[in-house]
Write a protein that binds this DNA or RNA. Structure first.
Length: 412
RNA sequence: GCGGGUGUAGCUCAGUUGGUUAGAGCGCCAGGUUGUGGUCCUGGAUGUCGUCGGUUCGAAUCCGAUCACUCGCCCCA
């Protein structure tokens, strides 16, 4: 088509799409607010190390998906690929350890240089929450319940399911990792190329392989639950019991793992089958080691992020736009502009066309789905009145200018 | 990053075995006279047929490259 195309994987959101997008954002923020979360707005770019150090040097995000560039002073800058690292950086640089526990909500664009697909973009948007400073599994329960409530408020309760797993603490995870690598190394001849690669970079990922041969090997692999120490086992049990107590249904999914290095204990995903290959709609977990790994005071944390575009696609209906009041003059110089101004200042959404006769202006009023029309005619104005027409019923009445706002109130 | 599919007006699409000025529906604009919409009738505008290059007397139709979208893989929200 035109030479002027948006950059691959980016989109303009307008009209219906933008309303769906905003609805997801607003419902998420409102739900988070009820759980005591306040908003944090961090920059959309950070020094590259903020991401490369926290996400793991070998992760896909760091090795091939970051938008990185040198700024004018030569510093390496990266457009944020996710939200947690920036929040963690803000926590440390802002000395927020004085305010624990800290409950933060964020929203905004994220950038990943991936091959676009349905529900997968290069600039996409997330809402997310982080709860910092609480070791207790109560935090995990609260954060997951918040996610579930937000999804329910969006009408998605029946479209998603919650998968839950534990990665154990560092000790359990290390022990299991060794056992798993030991087991898988015995089958290198049968594993797929992808899984041999995973074995090097992120062995737990092999558990989630879709390759049939891999699945056969994985079927006999040791289970993480066998390697959990008492503390980790107890932690996971408390999370499950807590979720049951607040009525959030979860399925334990032993093969659910996380791609990013900083996770421990709880890992969870809300998934759907409605988005093709992109099933994950909201995902997160516990990251007790992250803040200290970045050089801050040891601080536990748990959080999740959800893709706004993915949620937006699942919405059953598009929120309707405002229904304005149309101001329609039947001739020039009838004071339409001052009247529109007066109504706007009184709080009405007012549509005022720029040209055309009455017929055309009424047509336009339909197009913008106006609820009512205030029609200015010379005869009525001579009596200090205007005609107010209910555009749904077609009823019209003459209203004295002095009481216009009052009579218009029902069309708001 | 890898593999498959697609790409014609704002939108959804049609375009016969390559053959003159590329079509439909919806939408848009204008009219159906003097101050009233959503229906109806009539008329009108709009496309570098994604882009670039090649084959041919001639290409929207064939070939190549490229870009974008789309499905799957990797990975992820």
């Amino acid at each position: 088509m035109s030479v002027l195309q948006p950059v691959r994987g980016t989109h303009d959101l307008l009209a219906e799409e933008s309303r769906r997008h905003r609805r997801v954002e607003e419902v998420a923020f409102e739900t988070a607010r009820r759980y005591g979360f306040g908003e944090i707005i961090t920059p959309i770019f950070e020094f590259t190390e903020v991401f490369s150090r926290t996400l793991g040097e070998t992760s896909d995000v760091v090795t091939k998906e970051m938008y990185t560039f040198a700024d004018r002073s030569g510093d390496s800058i990266t457009l944020r690929p996710e939200g947690t690292a920036g929040v963690a950086r803000a926590f440390i640089s802002g000395g927020l350890s004085q305010h624990l526990p800290l409950k933060l909500f964020y929203r905004g664009p994220m950038f990943r240089h991936e091959r676009p697909q349905k529900g997968r973009l290069r600039q996409f948007h997330q809402v997310g929450v982080e709860l910092l400073g609480v070791e207790s599994p109560q935090a995990d329960v609260e954060v997951i319940a918040l996610g579930a409530q937000m999804l329910a408020a969006l009408g998605l309760k029946d479209k998603v399911r919650l998968e839950l797993n534990t990665l154990g603490d560092a000790e359990s995870r290390a022990a299991y990792r060794d056992a798993l690598v030991g087991y898988l190394s015995g089958y290198e001849d049968r594993l797929s190329k992808d899984s041999l690669d995973r074995l090097q970079r992120n062995p737990l990922r092999v558990l989630d392989s879709k390759d049939e041969a891999d699945k056969a090997v994985v079927a006999g692999a040791p289970l993480l639950t066998e390697y959990l120490n008492d503390a980790s086992r107890s932690f996971f049990e408390q999370v499950q019991a807590g979720l049951a107590a607040v009525g959030v249904g979860a399925e334990v999914s032993p093969r659910l793992v996380r791609g990013l290095d900083y996770y421990c204990h709880t890992a969870f995903e809300f998934t759907t089958t409605a988005l093709g290959a992109q099933g994950t709609v909201l995902a997160g977990g516990r990251y007790d080691g992250l803040i200290s790994q970045m050089g801050g005071p040891a601080t536990p944390g748990i959080g999740w992020a959800a893709g706004i575009e993915r949620l937006s696609m699942l919405l059953d209906e598009t929120p309707s736009a405002d229904r304005p009041v149309a101001v329609i003059p039947m001739g020039a110089d009838l004071g339409a502009l001052p009247l529109a101004q007066r109504l706007r200042q009184a709080g009405f959404a007012v549509d005022l066309g720029y040209s055309g006769n009455v017929k055309k202006r009424l047509n336009r009023a339909n197009k913008v789905n106006a609820r009512a029309a205030v029609i200015l005619g010379e005869d009525e104005l001579a009596r200090n009145a205007v005609a107010v027409r209910d555009l749904d019923s077609g009823e019209q009445e003459e209203v004295p200018l002095a009481v216009l706002e009052e009579r218009l109130a029902r069309f708001r």
